[in-house]
Write a protein that binds this DNA or RNA. Structure first.
Lengths: 173, 173
DNA sequence: CGTGGCATGTAATGGGTTACATGATTAC
DNA sequence: GTAATCATGTAACCCATTACATGCCACG
């Protein structure tokens, strides 16, 4: 889905693809690079992408075919498979009595910092894209999602830091 | 970590363990049940948990040993390994031009509904635990995290539904 | 002429999920 | 007595990550 989607924006090489997935989709999606070339070969075999010789020897440009676009539409229409939750921060905080309040505060503080960094990164993206004459509304809503979540984490972290400051630093024996 | 943590609260059988992980930790952590018994055997071998005969033939009660508690503390202190992001909703919305605004609105509406359900579930937990004389503050902060995130999703969804309503329903050809 | 970035792949490994297989006990 | 629940485990399979292996080209 990610590969076809990226190629729906513009044709590119496998190398450019992995950079696009890392840099553009990276905030909410990732592909292991070991999967990209096999996926590309697979999609080519099924006629969803076409391979043209690229500017350099041995390099290729991949283009989305009409049937590839149809396939992308079908994939996007499939139900979302939500992965089982695995939130390491919450697991640690849940057993915070064993870990101790001081260590928990460190965890929360670093989560707060991370959210602040994400927020700054989003602001940067907004700044560059609005300078270029407005964002695609669909990209805008994904950005907005990240902003809402990051602000929520910020608020929660502040609240939680206050709560934890009233607890004994040392873990239970 | 989840197994030792659960046993730090009270000794229980493997069966109870898997139910505790599903029902109590389920909102932010999951373990595949095929892993629990091997993990238990492994932890027993290393002396982190002790197995006592349970009330029923062939059943066992697992108890956290002092070294197991130390091990749990060490595990909780390890850096959080964040999984690479995989948000199927945002991936679909990012390529929303291909999917069409009408389909995107459905996705957002169902995400909104899910967040509302989570919020209701958290409220229920709060109600039952406060009736039982107040929550462990550490459990409280994990609950609060879920509430903040769910409210953020709710707000984002409303905003996004409004944005998408101003876009053409049909996908790009 | 060599370093760094572009470019394409393969292979081993590991972790986890699913499904399977079995049996005891309790409640109806 | 039989269905549901409690209870313990094993094995196959799938997927993905990581590391590896190779070569071209531009720039200094």
């Amino acid at each position: 889905m990610a590969v076809l989607g990226a190629l729906s924006v513009e044709p590119m090489s496998g190398y450019a693809l992995r950079e696009a997935i890392r840099d553009v989709l990276g905030h909410f999606w990732s592909e292991s690079f070991g999967q990209i070339y096999p996926a590309l070969a697979n999609l080519e075999e099924q006629g969803f992408v076409a391979r043209q010789p690229g500017p350099r020897a041995g390099s290729s440009m991949f283009t989305l075919t009409p049937s590839g676009r149809a396939r992308l539409h079908a994939l996007l229409s499939q139900p979302i498979r939500t992965a089982p939750p695995r939130n390491g921060l919450l697991l640690r905080l849940f057993f915070g009595r064993v870990l101790g309040a001081a260590a928990c505060r460190k965890l929360v503080a670093s989560a707060r910092e991370e959210a602040a960094e994400r927020l700054a990164a989003y602001a940067k993206i907004r700044a560059t894209t609005t300078a270029e004459g407005g964002v695609d509304p669909y990209i805008g809503v994904t950005l907005s999602f990240g902003e809402h979540i990051a602000r929520a984490v910020l608020a929660w972290a502040d609240e939680t830091l206050a709560t934890l400051s009233r607890l004994p630093d040392e873990p239970d024996a």
